[in-house]
């Protein structure tokens, strides 16, 4: 067996691949949101990590102030943060239409620093625990590893949301408008489609996806003001590898990078934080537009 040759028992390898898939599910949902936003607004949304964190904090706030538990939060938190996203788009990003990309990047990056800084000041950096819902506590012994039910649910929920988004973009009329908007917004507007409204909604949706990932993450890690800043750079690498703005690219690359990272944690744990960037560098050299991107 190859695995025996490498000195790693197969069950350990399966376990790590599965864990990689779970992390990949987070990467997929987050990079999907980024891809949607970039596709339509041409904005590199650096506040994505902060909005993901807000999703987790919204989950916490819902249970503390309104007694609304996990399942309610799964729907409400993305709506709340998505609404905030719409406000951000209307008030701030709207003003940057037509100027250099760099301004959007700087604005969203600054926004992320302000949001995260405020939350560190208010809640400290160690975070607050959030218990997984009772229905998903415990787990199952797969023989090669113990799989917590909650982690299995994360993969399921992420894949469903990713597929739904893909279908929305590829198979519905709204999706067709959205894709047309990416190609040629002026022409689309000439056909009587309200393009500014479309971009606002697309930003809100991308942000809601980030918040959804935040709700999924809340019971796993601490609900922590810095939870997004640790993740966002990796997610950007995923988007670049998949091809900026490519929906399917974001999903597939997210899952794949999670698994590559998982394998690295077995063979060379110290390098697990860098492996995705290595892949990014290689992809950029060989295919500058990304694996699923259209070559310009």
């Amino acid at each position: 067996m190859l695995t025996d040759l490498l000195g790693i028992p197969p069950q350990v390898l399966f376990g790590q691949l599965l864990l990689g898939l779970i992390n990949g599910a987070f990467y997929a949902v987050l990079s999907l949101g980024l891809a949607v936003i970039f596709g339509l607004l041409n904005i590199v949304n650096f506040s994505h990590g902060a909005l993901y964190m807000l999703g987790a904090f919204a989950t916490l706030a819902l249970v503390q102030f309104f007694g609304i538990g996990y399942w309610g939060a799964l729907v409400l938190a993305p709506l709340m943060v998505g609404a905030l996203g719409i406000v951000i788009e209307r008030l701030l990003l709207r003003r940057l239409v037509g100027v250099d990309h760099l301004y959007g990047l700087l604005l969203t990056f600054g926004l992320a620093l302000v949001i995260e800084g405020t939350f560190v000041k208010l809640f400290g950096a160690s975070g607050i625990p959030y218990a997984a819902p009772a229905a998903l506590s415990g787990g199952v012994n797969l023989g090669f590893m113990f799989l917590p039910w909650y982690r299995a649910w994360v993969v399921l929920a992420s894949v469903v949301v990713c597929l739904a988004t893909w279908l929305l973009f590829e198979r519905t009329k709204i999706g067709a408008y959205l894709r047309a908007g990416t190609e040629n917004p002026k022409l689309l507007q000439a056909f009587g489609v309200n393009v500014p409204m479309l971009t606002t909604l697309a930003y809100g949706y991308g942000v809601a996806l980030a918040a959804f990932a935040g709700v999924l993450a809340a019971p796993i890690t601490q609900v922590n003001p810095l939870m997004g800043s640790n993740l966002i750079i990796v997610v950007f690498a995923v988007v670049v590898i998949g091809g900026m703005g490519s929906i399917i690219g974001a999903i597939v690359t997210g899952l794949a990078m999670g698994m590559i990272e998982g394998l690295t944690k077995v063979f060379w744990p110290e390098a697990s934080a860098t492996v995705i960037f290595l892949v990014m560098a290689i992809v950029l050299i060989l295919r500058p537009a990304g694996l699923f991107g259209k070559t310009a």
Partner: peptide, 20 residues
């Protein structure tokens, strides 16, 4: 021993190695 990056957010993989 397994060395993990600093800081790290997901420890499940390292925990599984420790368990094994």
């Amino acid at each position: 021993a397994a060395k993990h990056p600093f800081p790290a957010s997901d420890f499940s993989s390292f925990m599984l190695q420790a368990q094994a």
